[in-house]
């Protein structure tokens, strides 16, 4: 017991060191040179670069990555399915539909209103998916996310239909394409809204995994089933809508990070929330740095990089899991 605990701490220490290293790297990598000497000497230009561009970008990455990973964790805990995340349950597609409808009803609007529309639709859609999930008899771990993706495809087709009708296809294509390259002072602050969501997630962590065991079980343990589910869905919807409007889609984060962390740390949700946030940040920071360097001085969209690295890691995870279950 004590041995595993020390190992546990050890791993977290490694994670924290890695995180610190990548944060520094993220601050220093870029077209304009930033050197340690300039920072210490207090060179105003260098500090300006850091303050206006590098720090906001790094903060945006940390906020997005950790909140998305936690949202994935909540979703997987509630549904007791390791392959479910906002991107495999139609949540992202619903957020796109929401932004599109907001655009058609109110014209080009501020990011806050966009986020509200995305939030409402993400919430409704996730709620419907959870209802469907309770009705599905054949609860194969892989079958459920497949249904989720088909459900997402249907929502997307509704969005395409509406956009086609009102000549907004071009707008539709621009939704969700983003990345961190344009994040500077004044364009990332809305992301702070995910912080309360993360704190609530940490407080409720244990209750989410209890709820995942079923309604009767939760009630026996004195957990308010409906209430906790609603809290979970709210957090998922807030996180996915805000990060979606602010940075666009980051494939696989909500899916892989909780899986990898639970592989190394076990399924104790409360203990792993912080590790998941850290691990998610490390993963996305690494990808962002790769996207900045691969065609330096230009950048590729982080969605591409994440699509490749995330897919490869996810493939390894499921092959392992299947081998484990198969034998």
């Amino acid at each position: 017991m004590s041995k595993s605990l020390s190992l546990f701490r050890h791993r977290r220490a490694i994670l924290i060191v890695l995180f610190g290293l990548l944060v520094c790297l993220s601050l220093f990598v870029g077209v304009l040179d930033v050197s340690v000497i300039d920072i210490i000497e207090g060179n105003p230009d260098t500090w300006n670069i850091l303050w206006v561009s590098r720090i906001p970008r790094t903060l945006a990455i940390i906020l997005t990555a950790s909140s998305l990973s936690i949202a994935g964790l909540i979703m997987q805990a509630i549904s007791r399915n390791k392959f479910i995340s906002p991107s495999t349950a139609g949540t992202t597609n619903a957020a796109i539909l929401g932004v599109l409808l907001g655009y058609l009803i109110m014209g080009d609007q501020s990011l806050i209103i966009r986020s509200i529309f995305a939030f409402i639709f993400a919430l409704i859609s996730t709620f419907i998916f959870m209802l469907m999930l309770r009705k599905i008899k054949f609860k194969n771990v892989i079958y459920v996310p497949l249904i989720g993706m088909m459900y997402g495809a249907m929502i997307s087709s509704i969005a395409t239909f509406i956009a086609h009708r009102y000549q907004a296809l071009q707008f539709l294509n621009t939704i969700g394409i983003g990345g961190f390259s344009n994040k500077a002072v004044g364009s990332y602050e809305l992301l702070y809204l995910v912080v309360p969501g993360m704190i609530v997630a940490w407080i409720y962590a244990t209750r989410f995994s209890i709820v995942g065991m079923g309604e009767d079980f939760a009630k026996n343990l004195g957990v308010r089933y409906g209430f906790v589910i609603s809290v979970g869905l709210m957090i998922i919807a807030i996180v996915s809508s805000i990060t979606f409007v602010m940075v666009g889609t980051l494939p696989f984060v909500g899916l892989i990070v909780p899986n990898l962390v639970s592989y190394y740390y076990g399924d104790h949700v409360k203990k792993t929330v912080i590790d998941i946030a850290l691990f998610g940040s490390v993963f996305v920071l690494l990808n962002d740095i790769i996207s900045r360097l691969i065609v330096f001085p230009y950048e590729v969209s982080i969605s591409f990089t994440m699509g490749v690295t995330g897919a490869l890691i996810f493939l390894i995870i499921i092959f392992r899991r299947m081998k484990h279950e198969g034998t």
Partner: peptide, 14 residues
């Protein structure tokens, strides 16, 4: 199917 979906994300990104 699941592997197929992941592969398609991978190849689309590439």
């Amino acid at each position: 199917l699941l592997v197929g979906i992941i592969l398609s994300t991978l190849s689309r990104s590439l």
